[in-house]
Write a protein that binds this DNA or RNA. Structure first.
Lengths: 129, 129
DNA sequence: AAATTTATATATAAAATGTATATAGAGAAA
DNA sequence: TTTCTCTATATACATTTTATATATAAATTT
């Protein structure tokens, strides 16, 4: 049985910058702009500065299903139009709230990381003297 | 058989901010200042702004052994002095070089993350209008 | 003498991620 | 027209990463 997203607090503790953690956020941000299906969401990563082959489709679809299971997004089959059927996702209120909170935490984590890098840089500079 | 540190490029690709990745770097930075044993290295994390209970001792000792296996540090038993025997680590030239390279990458990754967060912030602001 | 702290180590379990493969519609090329 | 490629989703399996639990033992504190 797959683990529920965010069931375990550890998922978002520590520095929270696991790859998928960021992908959750970017997918949600994309979906705020407009509903989209998985394949396009992966391609849209480029707009956020993430090479789309960083995220295998297998992972992307799993992330989306997990997010739906957690109530952050909802989905519907779109059968009209050209090509194979597409599962179109849209963000829920819960998803929007989640993203807002995630961003607050992420900013804090980024600051912490910045301090750590500066400290490490300081140690290396000291050594050069 | 344990996987060799950095054998798989993935270990340091993507955003590279997995917890242990940061711990490798902080341990190495600590060891540039002076040789230390595992137990104290964990306690020293606080100086870098990382709560030491973020890293269980079990993980810390494994990280140190992995780093030794990869030639980033070397170790010796210290039996004199008070308390149980301590395995004292010191950084190697390879370790120093590794840390310098890691820092360069980490800074780039941090910038990328910053941009992503800004973009997400932008999407959320847009929604508020 | 018993409990706690310091110190290292390993085994096991759980969680996260990556790779491989299956399916199938639609359009292009041979 | 049938073969190939692209779009699109999905799942199974494998690997990697991380956490928890436990074992050992010297030294110190109660």
């Amino acid at each position: 049985m797959r683990v529920k997203f965010n069931k375990n607090k550890r998922l978002c503790t520590k520095f929270g910058f696991k790859m998928n953690n960021i992908i959750y956020a970017v997918f949600l941000a994309s979906l705020i702009e407009k509903p989209l299906y998985g394949y396009l969401l992966v391609e849209k990563l480029e707009e956020f500065g993430i090479k789309s082959d960083f995220v295998p489709y297998g992972s992307a679809y799993r992330i989306l299903r997990d997010m739906e299971f957690s109530g952050l997004v909802s989905s519907e089959w779109q059968t009209e139009g050209t090509g194979p059927a597409k599962r179109v996702y849209k963000i829920t209120d819960k998803g929007t709230e989640f993203l807002r909170n995630w961003l607050v935490d992420a900013k804090k984590n980024l600051e912490t990381l910045e301090k750590i890098l500066k400290r490490i840089g300081g140690v290396l500079n000291e050594q050069d003297k």
